[in-house]
Amino acid sequence: MNWNLFVTELVAGITHGSVYALIALGYSMVYGILKLLNFAHGDVYMVGAFIGYGLITVFGGAEALSINIVLLLVLMFVCAMLGGGLLGVMIERFAYRRLRAAPRIAPLITALGVSFFLENAAQLVLGAQFQSYNSFGWKGGELWTKGFTLPAQVHVGIAQVIVVVGAVVLMVFLTVFVQRTQTGKAMRATSFDREAAAMMGIDVDRVIVVTFFIGSALAGAAGVFNGIAYQQVWPYMGFQAGLFAFIAAVIGGIGNLPGAVLGGLTIGLAESFAIGYLSSTFQAAIVFAILIVVLIVRPSGLLGRAAVQKV
């Protein structure tokens, strides 16, 4: 057994899975409360990634950073999360709010419209070129050369550590928020039964706004994480990521937050092991086939409750 290959694939899968998980969390939160498949979520992620890129450019570009790396990272996360969150709130306010009582498919198409708009507006304003965070070049590349070595001589760079640890911190923060705070409880109540929650005196409007803000802020952060680990940003990056996040959310049990994390990790690991041990050409097909089997065995996702239909 080639342990080096195995451990490398494991690390790659967990890193990529963390990014998927963060995007899937926002997807799942919004779904839990509004039962809305928010296809524009991936584009919020794209905007977050561009905000991070903008900051790198402002501070002299990747090769000649005029600012401490830690400070830059903090700044990138704060700005991307705020920017993503605000964008999410705006989308909810102007595109979805009036459709809350409409048939479920209407906001779905609206979400596609928002996605079209954001992708192409980004291309108009920012250009279609691929831009790179180039974290390999920050201060002589210490984000990648420093780090530690796992068994079987697998080197893990700080960049990968930042992604995984950062994602875990955000997830813990989110869990505490949802489980312990007043607003978190209101969110859970709303997602369980919006009407009953409203009757109990919960301000549903506010809860929805908060949900969109947090979910979209996570997507913004995921954009920056993705940039640090995988460098590239471009206007159409959100489409594929949104699709995979949707898949991750459903696999874990849509509306279920730990499920979204599990789903994201499952996809990340399935991808990298499919490439490592089966075929890179049919990687996507293999992943989809695995997922179809998972869903047929557990029709409501890995951690989802069996759907009880109300009469």
Binding site: E9, A12, T15, A229, S272, F273, S280, Q283
Partner: peptide
């Protein structure tokens, strides 16, 4: 060793491991 990626990919670490 013939391999493929897709134009949408940005994570090649799994492939590089091979």
């Amino acid at each position: 060793d013939r391999e493929s990626i897709s134009q949408k990919d940005t994570d090649f670490s799994s492939l590089v491991a091979k």
